[in-house]
Design a protein around this nucleic acid. Structure first.
Lengths: 145, 145
DNA sequence: CCTTGAACCTACAGCTACTGTAGATACTAC
DNA sequence: GTAGTATCTACAGTAGCTGTAGGTTCAAGG
């Protein structure tokens, strides 16, 4: 196995910061890489691949713990697909819940702004609405998301 | 002005934790309340009102700095409504961007899962997709949100 | 009056997922 | 040889709380 990439090159190809890679190493998400004579980290293609797996999962909004689980699944020889499935499904539910919540927020915010644009500065509906929760149309945003 | 509410009562009515209130006080979002003889915090209706303003803004996703700005606007005598408007509008844009991003994630996640359900455990598309960014249909999720 | 238990107090550590900084060393190009 | 960039370690800081430890205060019951 060739170890040919510096941390900077790897960071660039993964679209993340150098510190992020060191952070992943520190928390055990990436293995300790070998070092050059001058004590600089050297990465193989395999390492690069793992990092891109992590970044992709993170881009998809998976929390680090889920990424950890996904890695251990994909590392295990029998690839327990159902477990990976379940993690992805949990994540999907979470994403959908967040979308719902954000849409409720959007509704309330734009309602607030619509009214305010029409009114005078003296009776700013933005501030009034914020002051008085009872003016809310939607109460959905109180739900966890 | 009557100071009649304990921190616990205020927390309950605002739907937040006691610690959160102390935290808001610490960072200067809530004024230092008066204290009872036994050194316990006592709040007025005005304090309760301000906390509910803060919580409502937070429920709407405003970051604390925006909340700070909104408070100072609503505290100022001439109520610069346009400034409040602008903050709300920024927030609305942000919410919409987040919705877009999350919808892209949703699409990719469900695509991933759809394929996986159909396939065999041996070629888990969840793990494969995560491994290979090039399998992505949407690349939108790379945009900041 | 005394005790019990809940609510309160301060001060600080911990959470997620990084990001930034300081000061030192290594590598690359001219 | 030297300049400039990349890397190294170690640690502090970010947002927005939340939890914990170890101690006080308060309200109710016996």
């Amino acid at each position: 196995m060739k170890y040919e990439y510096t941390i900077g090159q790897v960071a660039k190809s993964a679209g993340c910061k150098v510190q992020t890679i060191r952070y992943y190493e520190q928390i055990g998400l990436l293995p300790n890489p070998i070092r050059s004579e001058g004590n600089q980290r050297l990465y193989s293609n395999r390492d690069v691949h793992r990092l891109s797996f992590i970044r992709h999962a993170r881009d998809l909004g998976f929390p680090l713990q889920a990424v950890r689980d996904l890695i251990s699944i994909s590392d295990s020889p029998d690839h327990a697909c159902e477990a990976a499935d379940e993690i992805a499904e949990t994540q999907l539910k979470d994403v959908r819940a967040r979308i719902q919540r954000l849409q409720a927020l959007e509704k309330e915010l734009s309602r607030m702004l619509d009214h305010c644009h029409g009114g005078k500065a003296s009776d700013c509906l933005v501030l009034e609405t914020l002051s008085d929760h009872s003016l809310c149309v939607t109460e959905d945003h109180k739900n966890p998301a």
